[in-house]
Design a protein around this nucleic acid. Structure first.
Lengths: 209, 209
DNA sequence: GATAAATTCAAACAAATGTTTAACTTTGCG
DNA sequence: CGCAAAGTTAAACATTTGTTTGAATTTATC
């Protein structure tokens, strides 16, 4: 295993453990053991446990920013299509990067590490600006209603998806999908989520079809 | 300070610290110092740190259950009024018991303590059943649409409120409410949240006015 | 007011935790 | 090869952490 490969591997394992046990709950020994590397390697590579977490955030944030920027590029779509693409992308991203989103969620509640909070804030801002511009565009073309509270709408999207990430198994149980294979259920849930959020956006932004 | 008063006081301080630093991040010494009691008193009263947390949950859950049951009692209201009351109550409760809702949020992600998870599950179930019956009632009177995904809708409510609890200051900043006094802003946010969620429910359940 | 029970406290304890050390091994390069 | 840099390791280190102890103090009960 090469140099950077090992970095990446440790970050991946750390991500899983931080998501599962929280930053304080996951010990450096846990991570070292799960990643099958010597305890000292984590300090050697990253400096400290805290810097390991920061490295994880910096690494993952790059990808997220790229995804957001990719959304801005889609110039040929209509405002409605843009909104729906944004919803689809967000849902897919959260499902795919569940562990990281769980870590972000807890870090926002337990606001301790200033560097991490700053990174989260930046990401949120870029998202909020994207959505604001998008909605403004739709309002200019009279497709969307006036007086939209972008932040409220944005938090409805992130909140709904986050809650379902947390309550996935509970949703499964409550709706009697217990017999369904996991992979199939995941696809179903994702589809239902997309449909639901699009309906919410449609109602709030005030467009039909 | 009487016997049970001290229990209550320690639980209150522990609640604040768990919300601020997480279960693993808040040490027994932190709690003892903040509550101004001797370190040993926490073991003496509650048995252990884990049992302290469980006591907190049991204590708070009683109140929550009572609130949910109070909602069921309101027989004279129309289904629409019931839904709107449910939204109002939920928002007010989360704002009022922010610390506890933060702890619950993190505990759901970091699923470790089985007793606590069971308590959370029970609460969720009672809520889900309440909302299901309520919606079924509205559907019977043809006020609400058919084919409502109760869980999705419920998670939209809880998710939106949770996200805003986390992003409160960020919402304040983004919408230029920085100059407004905190108390005034809280009331404003609560009103906006209520209006927003009622619009969402109106659209999804399919009723006007 | 005496006695027992409950409460409070400083100190101690053992285990866990993040980090460092110093010896050892591997790798890269002239 | 020779050797310096990088990587790897087990052990040790210094704190921190949850919990317990045993003596001291307060409270309750007769």
């Amino acid at each position: 295993m090469g140099n950077t490969e090992k970095h990446i591997h440790i970050l991946k394992i750390a991500e899983e453990l931080f998501a599962e046990k929280g930053f304080d709950g996951a010990t450096v020994r846990d991570i070292a053991e799960a990643a099958d590397v010597n305890l000292a390697m984590i300090s050697y590579y990253f400096g400290s446990k805290e810097k390991l977490m920061e490295s994880l955030f910096k690494e993952r944030m790059v990808m997220m920013k790229l995804k957001v920027e990719a959304l801005i590029e889609n110039k040929m779509l209509t405002p409605i299509q843009k909104v729906e693409t944004l919803i689809d992308n967000y849902i897919e991203r959260v499902i795919e990067k569940q562990s990281f989103y769980k870590i972000m969620l807890c870090e926002q509640v337990i606001n301790k590490n200033v560097i991490i909070l700053k990174l989260i804030k930046e990401l949120k801002l870029s998202y909020a600006v994207l959505l604001t511009n998008l909605i403004a565009e739709g309002q200019k073309s009279k497709i969307f209603k006036k007086n939209i509270d972008v932040m409220l709408l944005s938090n409805t999207m992130t909140g709904t998806v986050t809650q379902l990430m947390i309550n996935k198994e509970y949703y499964r149980e409550f709706n009697n999908y217990k017999k369904m294979p996991v992979a199939e259920f995941d696809i179903l849930l994702m589809a239902k989520l997309k449909e639901h959020l699009k309906n919410v956006f449609k109602a709030i932004l005030g467009y039909d079809q």
